[in-house]
Design a protein around this nucleic acid. Structure first.
Length: 264
DNA sequence: ATCGGTACCTGCACGC
DNA sequence: TGCGTGCAGGTACCGA
């Protein structure tokens, strides 16, 4: 589910938890902990204070008192809810000195981890797309040889872009998803950067896109799905030229594009 | 060093 | 009604 705008929205809605203390944590089965011992993890968390809540790409990072980092990833269907009702797919319940935070995830691609230091895996990710300069983005993009769609999804290139916002930004930039990055002019690469920044900024302002599962920590849906111009609109007319939107598979993911506005 | 393909999970919509 | 198929915001790992 959640890409940069959705994770950003969740992090913002978790703001009331900054400074709160974790009284206890309970974990239930599933692969959310990726084999870590639930009892041990709970023991490490009890009594710790949440010093901050930040987004790093699609990861949620919570530095705790005592120096450790609680790291969460929502995968495709993960939800963090303030005081939800535990259900079939609830995998973690954090009881705080004020309030409860619950982690639900039906597909179990989400992850909860505790790290001693800032995790190396996060340090290896590319820059935030809203922070990198257009010049640097364009130069780095052209250094690769893969398709532009695959590169946008590569978290070591830029962090936080997923399938929705890759397709939407390629549409706005008028670039076909299968175009090889090395063949894009500097100008078109810079135009893609601008489109990406626009799409992400608008999506954050709309609270993200709610396709099926996604809601923020207060249970509210995002609104940006109504602004999608190509994503999951296969067969529908292009908002610009009226041609039927097409779907191709790139990097094992559905890619939606307008065959007239986005030529190869 | 980079790439594409596969695996990991559950739920839903669809055609028969 | 039920069953099989394909698809869904994710990343990690494998071998070429």
């Amino acid at each position: 589910m959640p890409e940069l705008p959705e994770v950003e929205t969740v992090v913002r809605s978790l703001e009331p938890l900054v400074g709160r203390r974790i009284v206890s944590a309970e974990f239930r089965g599933a692969r959310t902990l990726r084999g870590a011992d639930p009892e041990r993890l709970a023991a490490h968390l009890a009594g710790r204070r949440i010093r901050a809540i930040r987004r790093h790409g699609k990861f949620i990072l919570m530095p705790l008192s005592g120096g450790r980092y609680l790291v969460l990833h929502l995968g495709m269907t993960g939800r963090l809810l303030l005081g939800g009702v535990p259900g079939k797919h609830t995998h973690a319940i954090f009881t705080l000195d004020r309030g409860v935070l619950q982690f639900d995830d039906s597909r179990q691609f989400g992850v909860i981890e505790l790290h001693e230091d800032f995790p190396a895996r996060l340090a290896r990710l590319g820059p935030e797309p809203l922070e990198i300069a257009a010049e640097d983005f364009a130069r780095e993009l052209r250094r690769h040889r893969t398709s532009v769609k695959a590169l946008l999804l590569d978290q070591t290139f830029v962090r936080g872009v997923g399938n929705i916002y890759a397709d939407e930004s390629l549409f706005r930039a008028g670039i076909h998803p299968l175009v090889r990055t090395a063949r894009l002019s500097h100008g078109r690469a810079a135009r893609l950067h601008r489109a990406l920044v626009e799409v992400l900024t608008e999506a954050i302002a709309a609270g993200g896109s709610s396709i099926s599962d996604y809601v923020n920590a207060e249970g509210r849906q995002g609104l940006f799905q109504v602004s999608h111009r190509v994503y999951q609109r296969t067969g529908e007319p292009c908002v610009t030229c009226g041609a039927a939107i097409r779907r191709v598979v790139v990097a094992q993911r559905s890619s939606h594009f307008c065959p007239r506005c986005q030529r190869r």
